[in-house]
Simulated assay, not measured.
Amino acid sequence: MARPVIALDADGVLLDFHLAYAMAWQRAFGEYPRERDPQAYWPIDRWEVPRLRLFKKARFRSTFDDQFWSTVPAIDGAIEACHRLHDAGYQLVCVSALDARFEAARRDNLKNLGFPIQRVIATGHHESMRSPKADAVEAIGAEVFVDDYLPYFRGIPDAVHAALILRAPNGSPNVGIDLAWVSSSHQDLPAFVDHWLSR
């Protein structure tokens, strides 16, 4: 009998993109940035870094390569939380708004960190009336979809439990009437797992 599927976002749910961003900054410019606001939702607001233009922006973006996407550190508690779900009988699939060319790097990243996740679906990112993740979540027959970005719940089927990870509140997009799309909200993945497994 097939395991029920839980679809999990990567950055902000499984992986700490903020720390990876700071490491990418150091790689591009030789200096690890100072922290400005540990409760900032967006990395550019968390770290004390200037807005970049033209050449420097291209230089920074060039660090977001296979090496970057295969070495993003795990969020504290996320690996253990995933093992709890796996041990409870769930199949975990990572659904990430990442360019398809980095799908293998993301899969390697999760595997090397010890996540019990064999499948990664890279959907790409675009702002529209329907989440770029909605088709993937529906296609894999997910029972649950966990993400930390409210707009990615647009178009998720009503039958799917939509779990929002709130994390850092400052500047968060996870506010407003669109919260009606959400079935439950949690501070982090371990809190969601506590909730889900205690039903």
Score class of each variant (00 low, 15 high):
Val5Glu: 07
Val5Trp: 06
Leu8Phe: 09
Asp9Ala: 01
Asp11Met: 10
Gly12Asn: 07
Val13Ser: 05
Asp16Gly: 04
Asp16Trp: 00
Asp16Tyr: 00
Phe17Ile: 04
His18Cys: 01
Leu19Tyr: 03
Met23Trp: 08
Met23Cys: 11
Ala24Ile: 09
Gln26Pro: 04
Arg27Pro: 10
Gly30Lys: 05
Glu31Cys: 09
Tyr32Met: 14
Tyr32Glu: 05
Pro33Gly: 01
Arg34Gly: 06
Glu35Asp: 00
Arg36His: 06
Pro38Gly: 10
Tyr41Thr: 01
Trp42Gly: 02
Ile44Thr: 15
Ile44Tyr: 13
Leu52Asn: 07
Phe55Gln: 13
Lys57Asp: 12
Lys57Arg: 15
Arg59Gly: 01
Arg59Ile: 08
Arg61Ser: 10
Gln67Ser: 12
Ser70Trp: 07
Pro73His: 05
Asp76Gln: 14
Asp76Thr: 13
Asp76Ala: 15
Asp76Phe: 07
Gly77Cys: 11
Ala78Gln: 05
Ala81Tyr: 13
Arg84Ser: 06
His86Asp: 10
Asp87Trp: 05
Ala88Asn: 07
Gln91Glu: 14
Gln91Asn: 12
Asp99Val: 09
Ala100Phe: 08
Ala100Gly: 07
Ala104His: 04
Ala105Val: 02
Asp108Ile: 07
Leu110Pro: 01
Asn112Arg: 14
Leu113Asp: 04
Gly114Phe: 04
Pro116Gln: 02
Val120Gln: 00
Val120Glu: 00
Ala122Arg: 03
Ala122Gln: 05
Gly124Asn: 02
His126Cys: 13
Glu127Gln: 11
Pro132Ile: 11
Lys133His: 05
Ala139Arg: 06
Ile140Gln: 06
Ala142Thr: 09
Glu143Arg: 15
Phe145Leu: 06
Val146Asp: 08
Asp148Ala: 00
Tyr152Gly: 00
Arg154Gln: 09
Gly155Ala: 07
Ile156Gln: 01
Ile156Trp: 02
Ala162Ile: 00
Ala163Gly: 15
Leu166Gly: 03
Pro169Cys: 04
Pro173Asp: 06
Asn174Gly: 03
Gly176Ala: 00
Ile177Asn: 09
Ile177Gly: 07
Leu179Pro: 08
Ser183Ile: 01
Ser185Cys: 10
Ser185Ile: 04
Leu189Ala: 06
Ala191Phe: 12
His195Glu: 12
Leu197Thr: 14
Arg199Glu: 13
